[in-house]
């Protein structure tokens, strides 16, 4: 079912849309959550929570892309849940697992949020990714949005591991250069 139809059904409060969303996006969304939580049942719960959030938020929200809205919702819930789960354990942020390399290209300083908000950084990243070839773009988003392991990216995109690593290295370096050029990056 396409995004436009889903949004129309949500706005009409057609309950059957939830089943349709599950059919169309269930597997992908549960996979996304599982990439963060490494637990299938938790991932299912995250997707369920996301469905409820979507049902309650559209309307009044009217996203341009329902697919992006749903995946973003799933990701946010999964991240929040991960952080809740690990806060007491003090095992560090999940993103430290997948995003160790962020240390190398994200703005430094005592409090980077003072100079750059997440939304601003997201905007910069978006602009940068749009300048990349489609393959590099998807590798980056799979790695850092979907939190996929390299082997999963390999399966999904049909690329070799070396190519994926090279792509990520290039993309990170390029992003750092872009951040520098725009005055965000300081060491």
């Amino acid at each position: 079912m396409d995004d436009r139809t889903v949004l129309r059904m949500l706005n009409e409060r057609d309950e059957s849309v939830l089943g349709e969303i599950r059919k169309t996006h269930g597997r992908g969304c549960i996979s996304l959550a599982n990439n963060y939580l490494n637990d299938r049942r938790d991932a299912e719960e995250v997707f369920s929570d996301a469905l409820l959030t979507v049902w309650n938020s559209i309307p009044p929200d009217s996203p341009g892309s329902f697919t992006a809205y749903l995946y973003r919702t799933v990701r946010n819930i999964a991240l929040a849940r991960y952080r809740d789960m690990h806060r007491q354990k003090r095992e560090g942020d999940l993103t430290a697992v997948a995003l160790d390399d962020a240390e190398g290209f994200i703005p430094g300083g005592v409090d980077p949020v003072e100079s750059l908000t997440a939304a601003e950084l997201g905007s910069v990243i978006s602009a940068y990714l749009k300048s990349l070839p489609e393959t590099d773009r998807n590798v980056f988003v799979c790695r850092y949005f979907h939190n996929m392991q390299l082997n999963d990216i390999k399966k999904k995109l049909g690329l070799g591991l070396r190519k994926i690593r090279n792509s990520l290295t290039r993309s990170r370096e390029g992003l750092r250069e872009k951040l520098k050029k725009e005055g965000y990056y300081y060491e």
Partner: peptide, 25 residues
């Protein structure tokens, strides 16, 4: 907010088109 958290949050703000493209890839 540390760098990783900032970056993680920022990735939730990337454009819709990038997310949908990756899903459909």
């Amino acid at each position: 907010m540390n760098k990783n958290t900032l970056f993680s949050e920022a990735m939730s703000y990337i454009d819709d088109s990038l997310i949908t493209e990756s899903v459909r890839a």
